[in-house]
């Protein structure tokens, strides 16, 4: 039976059967790029966001202050430019610019990873800055009042809370990255969307190929969003806490369950 004689479902099954390997490699490439770049994007975003959220210290000397101004200006430019232009053009700009101006051939993989990470970083920087500002200033005061330094306060108190607050946005970014790696087809990255284009081009079955590819994208994004939800609830810890028994110093020995609503049992 030739493909023109098949119905919609037969064509989809045919595509899945014939191209399962291509789909798998495409989906794997997409996921690797999305996961790695979301991770590095978060790292970049944390560093940039922290620098941007830092209030100038009154004890800093003039040199350090002006240096901070310059650094902050550059970071603001970075954030605004990468948020304000399409990633597809950024990909073309960096990939072809590197080879034409600097005679560097980035290679498809490193180009893809750099572009998506740097782009995600720009978005995450703003998110992190907002996340840091959303943490109650009383948390910082509480820490400073027991003698904790700025960096200890940041590391132990503010960032853990900021990261928890921005977890939904991190998840959002991951999902956007899974979908948006498709723009990398402009530099020839063989990810899921590229796979779709090749298959539909070869078979002229755009509708069926699109349906199958969409379903794969959806499975990927939905799985990720569920996993992230799970991580979020894990971060929140249990809703109830264990009430230590009256022997306070031996409180590891026996615990009774304390339920906030019903009270504890002794």
């Amino acid at each position: 039976m030739s493909i023109s004689e098949m119905n919609f479902f037969e064509r989809m099954l045919y595509i899945l059967d014939q191209y399962s390997g291509s789909f798998f490699r495409g989906a794997a490439t997409t996921m690797v790029i999305a996961l790695v770049c979301t991770f590095f994007g978060c790292v970049i975003g944390l560093l940039v966001g922290m620098l941007q959220a830092k209030e100038p210290d009154r004890k800093d000397n003039v040199v350090k202050r002006s240096l901070m101004h310059v650094v902050r200006f550059i970071l603001t430019c970075y954030v605004e430019v990468f948020r304000g232009t399409p990633m597809m053009l950024q990909a073309a700009f960096i990939y072809y610019g590197a080879s034409q101006v600097f005679h560097i051939n980035l290679g498809m993989w490193s180009a893809a990873l750099i572009i998506v990470s740097v782009n995600t970083g720009a978005y995450m920087a703003e998110t992190v800055r907002g996340g840091i500002l959303s943490v109650d200033p009383g948390q910082t005061e509480g820490a400073r009042a027991i003698g904790m330094s700025y960096s200890s306060t940041m590391f132990h108190i503010v960032l853990p809370q900021a990261i928890r607050n921005i977890m939904p946005q991190i998840g959002n970014n991951l999902i956007i990255n899974i979908k948006d790696t498709c723009v990398l087809s402009i530099i020839g990255t063989v990810e899921l969307f590229f796979t779709f284009k090749s298959i539909s081009g070869a078979l002229y079955t755009y509708f069926e190929a699109a349906t199958v590819t969409m379903a794969i994208y959806f499975v990927l994004t939905f799985t990720c969003s569920r996993i992230l939800r799970y991580i979020e609830t894990r971060m929140d810890g249990p809703a109830n806490f264990d009430l230590a028994t009256s022997d306070t110093l031996a409180f590891t020995s026996g615990l009774t369950k304390y339920n906030k609503n019903t009270g504890g049992s002794f």
Binding site: D136, G138, Q139, E141, G142, A143, R144, A145, I146, G147, H156, I157, P160, Q161, R164
Partner: peptide
């Protein structure tokens, strides 16, 4: 150093939520 010697208790507690 001074703050370890001169502690403070706030109206809004400021316990570390995390």
């Amino acid at each position: 150093k001074l703050r370890t010697k001169v502690g403070m208790v706030f109206q809004s507690f400021n316990l570390f939520n995390n």
